[in-house]
Design a protein around this nucleic acid. Structure first.
Lengths: 115, 115
DNA sequence: CCCGTACTCAACCATATGGTTGATCAACCG
DNA sequence: CGGTTGATCAACCATATGGTTGAGTACGGG
């Protein structure tokens, strides 16, 4: 699976409030699907689906202990997303710096290649 | 509009590859809707819709000069999203540190901070 | 062994989303 | 003023998404 795809799945995964809440919950430690479902007014199956979406995005991994499947957060995937954002946020700052440089360019009376 | 709502709209906005490409393009400076549409094989109207989604998420602002509406990136909104992610990424690291502390807890022979 | 617990699979439904085309609006150019 | 350019509005369509209920699978406990 290539990186772009994972970025796509990652943002798609975080686009849903239930899934963000799940991520928030998991940031405080692993939990089973049942535990994750508890705070929500939706069916267990729906939560199971959400977890799978998070899993396919690489945001989460599922373990197995007895019949329980404890879900863990996978922070590398979160980093991938911040990295994507920062790439373009910083690109923009670089543009600004370029502009600043331009504006600060010596106005050059005495030697002048005037525009 | 409250913060959660903006986070929601923000991630939803970035969940689409066309919109991510638009953000990428805008990170290198403002552009008109026509310019933004040029690299894509979709209609101008579709791009216009995408820009509106980005705008509602606060990721982008539209100016007005003559009949053109130059679109600018609004990096604060990007920061809001990284902040959201980092909040939970860091929360998890804090949990780890807490766990480490627990594991490192003095087992209390003679006062020794073992390991 | 078989029952209960913990989930997942499957079929289905309603609504949201991303795309289309066609009409319209707004501003400048001649 | 009339045409052209840039962009939006509106109606519509297909597919994706998030939810439901009901059946099925997998493992451990009594």
């Amino acid at each position: 699976m290539d990186d772009d795809e994972l970025v796509d799945l990652g943002f798609t995964a975080l686009a849903d409030p239930v899934r963000r809440a799940i991520v928030a919950r998991l940031s405080r430690g692993p939990a089973t699907v049942n535990e994750l479902a508890e705070p929500f007014a939706i069916s267990l199956q729906a939560v199971s689906k959400h977890v799978r979406v998070l899993e396919q995005a690489g945001l989460v991994t599922k373990g197995r202990e007895a019949q329980r499947r404890p879900v863990h957060l996978a922070p590398e995937a979160l980093e991938r997303l911040t990295a994507w954002i920062d790439g373009y946020r910083l690109a923009r700052e670089r543009s600004f710096r370029r502009l600043d440089a331009l504006l600060a360019e010596p106005r050059d009376d005495t030697g002048g290649a005037a525009r």
